[in-house]
Design a protein around this nucleic acid. Sequence first.
DNA 1: TCCAAAAGTAAAGCTTGCTTTACATATAGT
DNA 2: ACTATATGTAAAGCAAGCTTTACTTTTGGA
Lengths: 66, 66
Amino acid sequence: MKNRIKVARAENNWSQADLAERIGVSRQTINSIETGRYVPSTILALKMAQEFGKPVEELFMLEEGE
Amino acid sequence: MKNRIKVARAENNWSQADLAERIGVSRQTINSIETGRYVPSTILALKMAQEFGKPVEELFMLEEGE
DNA sequence: TCCAAAAGTAAAGCTTGCTTTACATATAGT
DNA sequence: ACTATATGTAAAGCAAGCTTTACTTTTGGA
């Protein structure tokens, strides 16, 4: 799964730590999601969507054959 | 987290097994998500949204203090 | 160049997602 | 009453999410 979290953060001028604090997870969790080390739960996806004011589909997208 | 998967299935006349097959998971996984036993990964949420033709936010919603 | 903030990565440990197998209950059609 | 389909639930086991701690590297400003 791809994601545009890094871009969305840049648009808001938030560090990984800023976003982590906003949604209540560790900074490493944000980093790991951004770098594709793992796929977040739907709860985290919804919280990020909420924080960024964008639909989940604009932040996370399925890849070929996924 | 709440979800409206049961309703969306009903609108499409799909059984839990139908949906499970469409998105490539076991029937128990669908049942467990519907009955709130666990929260799906973002990949599953996106696949369901895709199958139902609805945004993730219309299928899954955060609850108070979540 | 120096310093601080930001980002990347790693390992250990606990929790949760998801699978398979299996059984119980409900519902509806014949 | 019988059968088939749908749903609910449970347990064991493996895979993955997420945390904490901690160290390294990158980046940008004074």
